[in-house]
Amino acid sequence: MALDIQPKMRGNVLMGINPMGLKQEIQNQINYVKSQGTYEAPKRVLILGASSSYGLATRITLAFGGGADTIGVSYENGPRTERNLGTPGWYNNIFFKEAAEAEGLVAKNFVGDAFSDEMKANVIEYIQEEFGGKVDLVVYSLATGRRTDPETGETYRSSIKAIGQTVEGPDINLEKEEFYAGHLEAASEEEIEATVKVMGGEDWYIWMQALHEAGVLAEGAKTFCYSYLGDNLNRSYYQDGTLGRAKADCDAKAEMIADILADINGEARVIVATAVTTKASAVIPFFPVYCLGLYKVMEEEGTHETPIMHQDRIYRTMVYGDAPEYDEVGRLRPDSWELRPETQAKAEELIRQIDAENFNTDFTAWDTFMHEFLNLNGFDVDHYEHEEVTLEDLQALEP
């Protein structure tokens, strides 16, 4: 029986999945990269957190713009019942692999706990035995709310909170299309520490140490970790909050990793990316309202980007191009478009005027945000033509 697939929301979490819509969305992103032409890029790439958002976009641009063979690591679930079709990333992995292999590229998917020693060992073994022995680039793009430390067995859970203050501001319930006054509590020291353990750079460091010790990093190998900082408009709940503390830990770990890679002339760097629509950006307190104002301004300026547009620009023009932008501590800063003073000033003026009467009108970028949000699960996808599928069809897909 054909599945009746509809988008469903619970608060700011999108629950329903349209697998064939996700297939078209993958193709749309591939088509975008191809429309920009090819560029020189590394040919053997490992992406940790490869199944959605920045990680998926990175994999697509390097494969279809740079001709890279890729290994993707992610934690996803496949279809079980008609009410549980799995996670979007499960299908993203499958449809990326199909498209890449159709063009003669290697696209190996590892599905499981990237934080575990077992996953690290399995990936290293695959590189040694089936992936040419070494990788040229390692991208760290893991995003999750919990992490089990493989050394201690303790599980940590992150908290999105302020530090040393409570924060109030406008927020949105996407399910109810309700604009309301949000409230963010101050984090305890334990919550700060746990957030750093989950979302900081510790696991990135462990991965790079393991890869280096195994001898699977090529001479001159690069590694990048994605971060976000924002500016004064979201500083109180982001850069100055638990998320910001975790991102600062990534900066510290980048220096430690650079020391490890010195003997192979390697490079370790944080990339501070721009604000885009992801599952995380929808649930970070106050952040959807920031996006509604920022996107509106950047669309008018011609600088608004989706993850694939942003990542393609990063690798095509910055990392492997001739127009990198670094800050005073050596981070790559493709978020410079978002942080232009005139852009932030216009966004601030607009955000101050957003209220319950206009937040979901063309006064803001509501339509853009919701279109991109629905795309994450395969809905409202450009060029998608309805395709009936059964549970058996989905279960027969090869991960």
Rank of each mutant, 00 (worst) to 15 (best):
Q6F: 10
K8W: 01
K8S: 14
L14E: 02
G21H: 13
L22G: 12
K23Q: 14
E25H: 14
Q27F: 01
Q27S: 07
I30W: 08
Y32H: 09
Q36E: 12
Y39R: 10
P42S: 13
L46T: 03
L48F: 02
G49R: 07
G49S: 09
G55Q: 04
A57N: 09
A63P: 11
F64K: 11
G65F: 07
G66V: 04
D69T: 05
E76D: 13
P79A: 02
G86K: 05
Y91Q: 06
I94V: 15
I94P: 11
A99Y: 01
A102W: 03
G104C: 02
L105A: 09
A107Q: 00
K108M: 13
F110L: 10
V111Y: 08
A114L: 13
A114M: 14
F115T: 08
S116M: 08
S116D: 09
D117S: 11
D117I: 08
D117N: 15
M119V: 02
I127Q: 10
V135L: 02
V138A: 15
L142K: 00
A143L: 14
G145C: 03
E151A: 13
T152G: 06
E154G: 00
Y156M: 09
Y156T: 06
I160N: 05
I163R: 07
E168T: 15
E175M: 14
K176V: 06
E177T: 12
E178Q: 15
F179I: 01
G182A: 10
H183N: 12
H183V: 05
L184Q: 09
L184A: 08
L184P: 03
E191C: 04
M199T: 05
D203N: 15
D203S: 15
W207A: 01
A214E: 03
G215A: 10
L217C: 02
E219D: 14
S227E: 12
Y228M: 11
Y228H: 05
L233G: 04
N234E: 14
Q239F: 11
G244L: 12
D249K: 02
C250S: 08
A258V: 01
G266F: 07
E267K: 11
V270N: 12
A273F: 00
A275L: 04
T277P: 01
K279D: 14
S281K: 05
V283I: 15
F287I: 08
P288Q: 12
V289D: 00
C291S: 07
L292V: 06
L292G: 03
G293T: 03
L294K: 06
Y295L: 01
Y295D: 07
V297S: 02
E301L: 07
E301V: 07
H310M: 11
H310A: 14
V319W: 11
A323C: 04
L332S: 04
L332R: 03
P334L: 12
D335T: 10
W337T: 13
P341V: 10
Q344W: 05
Q344K: 11
A347I: 01
A347R: 06
A347P: 05
E349C: 08
Q353I: 00
D355N: 15
A356P: 06
T364S: 04
T364C: 01
A365N: 06
D367N: 14
T368N: 09
M370I: 15
E372H: 13
E372V: 00
L376I: 13
Y384G: 01
E387G: 07
E388T: 10
V389S: 10
V389Y: 08
V389R: 06
T390G: 07
E392S: 13
Q395M: 11
Q395F: 12
Q395I: 09
